[in-house]
Nucleic acid binder design. Sequence first.
RNA 1: CGGGGCGUGGCGCAGUCUGGUAGCGCGCCGGUUUUGGGUACCGGAAGUCGGAGGUUCGAAUCCUCUCGCCCCGACCA
Length: 572
Amino acid sequence: MRYAQLYVPTRREDPADAEVVSHKLLVRGGYMRMLARGIYSFLPLGWRVLQKIERIIREEMNRAGAQEVLLPSVQPAELWEESGRWSFYGPELLRFKDRKGAAFCYGPTHEEVITDLVRGDVRSYKQLPLNLYQIQAKFRDEIRPRAGLMRGREFIMKDGYSFDVSTEAAHASYEQMRQAYCRTFDRLGLRYRAVEADTGNIGGSLSHEFQVLAHSGEDWVTSCPSCGYAANRELTEVPSSGAPVSAGAEQAASASVETPGQRTVEEVTAFLKVSAQGLVKTVIFCDEADAPFAVLVRGDHEVNEVKVKNLLGGQAVRLARDEEVERLTGAPVGFAGPVGLACPIYADQAVGSILGFVVGGNAKDVHLTGVCHGRDFAVTRWADLRQVEEGDACPRCGATLEFYRGIEVGHIFYLGTKYSKALGASFLDESGASRAMEMGCYGMGVTRIMAAAIEQNHDDDGIVWPVPIAPFEVSLLTIGKVDDALVEAGQALHDGLVERGVEVLWDDREERPAVKFKDTDLVGVPLRLTLGARGLKEGKVEAKWRWSKDVEMIDLASAPEVIAAMILKARS
RNA sequence: CGGGGCGUGGCGCAGUCUGGUAGCGCGCCGGUUUUGGGUACCGGAAGUCGGAGGUUCGAAUCCUCUCGCCCCGACCA
């Protein structure tokens, strides 16, 4: 491909509306342009990268036994009413009406459509298992799209769904997909972790996220260097600290102390001259029915809301509002405590191993010291409810966990029969009994992968693409005075590489060398070939990898073979 | 939706407080020059100052309304 013929409008300056590096570089490098917030056009370079990502995904999905389909983006409301999600999904679902006034939505995900498809044609256990996927633009009217492709409203996603006869078979399908995902991200050339994850809104009970490691990631993941345990931070278990100790007769009775204006853990511990480990935080939440309850964690720990939610059977929980706290405790926020509190009290296990601690007094400017659980108040349930912290041990093997920032590029779920039951997707088993299909669903964000790859692979000069997803593998710069000899040599090298299946972008423009160097660095092509008058005289072409400082001089005569071999090696 | 910021040639910005003939850099077009890290010079094209309404002799600038974009919080591939 000749650069002069390619539509690559690069820019010198960062776009004013971009904050994150992938957004800036995708715009500057001529990969994409914004049409509306969270909605982007992909230019030739961007589309090439996306197609490369898609090809790898397709190959791995097909290899794992999944079959590609294409489902409609526009979906009738009735189907969503059947699953119960028409009212549940909220304003994120883009809804509209056709000319007859019938309600439709633009698909944010396709559980309904795929289940509807399968229920119509699959009747027998002999037709299962079935694993179908598609790659397509989704639309989610996000509250706050941001960071370019990292959270767009329209985005390209690979979504897949499996249908099985039993839980065991569904788990096998799930495992197959988990492995296919690992192979996919390996091939994409990304550093990532597959981590245990919360199942969120989609439901189900088994789930992994695939997190590309990058400093700019929004998620925290933990990973054990010793046994391989890895989880989203919000799901990372804290090792059990044993049964709660109980207060003996020697324990001094609790006492009330004046703590005027001291609300936070820092203020109270400093005021009373106790350590944060000697204080217990009482955090008031409300459940789905707006009924309040208290969560107790040690002063130096943080409550993990996901763990609290899961303790209550997965129902939505929220922090109580100030007036709700005041109504329950009879005191302003900052003085809540478990003693005499008329609501369920859930305590983190770490609270069980301390006695004689400080808590709020449920009265303005009052705290209690020397408080003991069991004696001074009853704990409704003990559980692991706190957030893991750096330095915490692996829940499986006890080694110290590592913490990383991650970008979620894939998420797989075991769904069970949630959708098959709601939509009546059933089959007849060997005994002739009708049973609901066991489902799994598997998402992968194609456009987000492109952004995440850049977040992970860039420098001050631009993008540094992993070879498997680079828009071109080689950029050939012919520099110096444009004359017949140079053009001829450039053409020969270009053609020789193309014949050998190498993707070459030949910068044949009449530009100064510096301009070409800047552009190829910005665009991020992995291997740069520089052919100038000097080299031409000596019969050499210079080769340099984008991520390296070293240059190599290659004989022009053998250059096509040598360079094709270099690229072949770099592809895997 | 709440809080903060911003809309001025294609891009990045100044001008707005204190109303008075629309400016700079980059890019673009023509020419000369230069040719290993965005070269230099000359000449040129290009803007209803986001939109609507108002105040005024006069509005990019003041007032009202409105649309769009970015950042911070509740979401997720």
